[in-house]
C-alpha cells in the first residue's frame, strides 16, 4: 500500500510504489455509502475544506466552482450524479482535484483511503445492480477486505455527463 500524509497547508500528498505487471495502483476514497477508485495519475491534489460557489443554470449534480491556485474548477457531486441522494457534508471531507486530458474537476471524498496496490486478477466487471448512471461510468470493481470498490472511468464520466446535459 502507498502512504499519504497531510501537509501543513491542509492539502494531502502521497507516495506510492509503481505498479508492476501483476498489480495496478489505485487511489481509493469513500463518498457516502460508496467507495470509489481512480488511477492515481489522474489525482492532481487533495485539498481541505474550500468554499464552493454555486453556478446558475447548472444541473443539480454540479455543486459549483472552487478556486484552486488560480484555476476555476467545477465540483461534481458524485452522489447526486449517480442518483444516490445528496451526500451529507462530513466535517472531515476533502476535495479531490482530478485531471483528465485538458479538463480539471473536483469531487468530495468523506475519507481518503490512499493509494492501494490491487492485484490485476482482482478486477472484475462492474456490478450489475448499480444505478444506470453509475454503471455507465464504472469500468470495473474490486474488493478491499469486505468493501466493494468501484473503479471510475473519467473519460466516460466526462462524455456521459455532457451527453446528459444535452439530452436535458
Amino acid at each position: 500500500m502507498g502512504e499519504h500524509k497531510i501537509t501543513s497547508t491542509g492539502s494531502m500528498a502521497w507516495s506510492a510504489e509503481a505498479g508492476d505487471d501483476t498489480r495496478e495502483m489505485m487511489f481509493v476514497f469513500h463518498r457516502g455509502a460508496q467507495t470509489f477508485a481512480l488511477p492515481p495519475t489522474s489525482v492532481a491534489e487533495v485539498l481541505g475544506q474550500l468554499e464552493v460557489t454555486p453556478v446558475p443554470f447548472a444541473p443539480g449534480w454540479i455543486e459549483g466552482v472552487v478556486g484552486v491556485r488560480g484555476d476555476v474548477v467545477p465540483v461534481l457531486a458524485l452522489q447526486t450524479y449517480f442518483g444516490l441522494g445528496k451526500a451529507e457534508a462530513v466535517a472531515s471531507r476533502r476535495l479531490v482535484v482530478i485531471r483528465h486530458e485538458a479538463h480539471t474537476l473536483a469531487v468530495w471524498a468523506d475519507r481518503i483511503v490512499g493509494v492501494e496496490a490491487v492485484e490485476v486478477g482482482a478486477f472484475e466487471p462492474p456490478l450489475g445492480n448499480l444505478p444506470e448512471a453509475m454503471l455507465k461510468v464504472c469500468r470495473s470493481h474490486f474488493r478491499m477486505n469486505e468493501t466493494v470498490v468501484h473503479c471510475l472511468d473519467l473519460g466516460l464520466l466526462l462524455t456521459e455527463s455532457r451527453a446528459r446535459v444535452v439530452a436535458g
Binding site: V55, A58, I62, P74, A102, H103, T104, L158, S161, V165
Partner: peptide
C-alpha cells in the same frame, strides 16, 4: 472552464 461550459443549460 470548457468542461463547465458544456454542463450549463
Amino acid at each position: 472552464p470548457e468542461l463547465l461550459q458544456g454542463w450549463l443549460r
